[in-house]
Computed example of a mutant assay.
Amino acid sequence: MTTASQLAAASGLLSLMLFVVGMAVIALLAGGFWMGSRIKTRESPRPRPEEQPHLPPEGAVHEIRENREPEEVPRTPKGGRPLTPYQLTNMQTRASSSKTRPRWSKGSSGSFGGGGLGAH
């Protein structure tokens, strides 16, 4: 055999293997679509328009913007024992009398450990 016939034989085998791999990929994709369609037919149907949620009769609910401030933490009497977390209970908030929104101070990043340079 000559060198050209040896290269042609190997090339033909390589082409056959690529064709087989390609057909396997196509078969896997087709099987995936087939399985997806079977699963979709078993799902419950989509809700009809009359089954969709509707606005309440009084209309859309609007948000309320207000500033909240926390209740004061109870003070420990002089010489008394410090309060433990379970004695503090749930700290509630109340509406603030101030209508101005709190802003971060100049040069602050706005949060602890924010990592930014802050306002310049």
Rank of each mutant, 00 (worst) to 15 (best):
E50S: 04
R38H: 10
T89K: 07
G113L: 07
T93C: 12
E72G: 09
S97I: 15
A30Y: 08
P85Y: 01
S5R: 10
V25N: 05
V21Y: 02
G80V: 00
A95T: 11
S96F: 02
H120T: 13
R42W: 06
I39W: 10
S37Y: 11
W34Q: 08
N90Q: 10
L16T: 14
N67S: 07
T89C: 07
I26G: 13
A8R: 11
T2W: 03
P70C: 09
P74H: 02
S37A: 15
K40N: 08
P70M: 10
S37L: 15
K106G: 04
A10E: 15
E63V: 11
T2E: 06
S108K: 06
R48L: 04
I64W: 10
N67E: 12
S96I: 02
E66H: 03
T41R: 15
G79T: 00
R81N: 07
G116N: 01
T84C: 08
L7W: 11
S111I: 04
G22K: 03
P53M: 01
K99I: 09
G107D: 05
R46K: 07
L7P: 00
A4K: 11
Q52H: 04
E51C: 00
L18Q: 13
R48E: 01
R68I: 09
T89Y: 13
V61D: 12
H120D: 14
P56H: 02
I64S: 11
T3I: 01
S5L: 13
S108N: 08
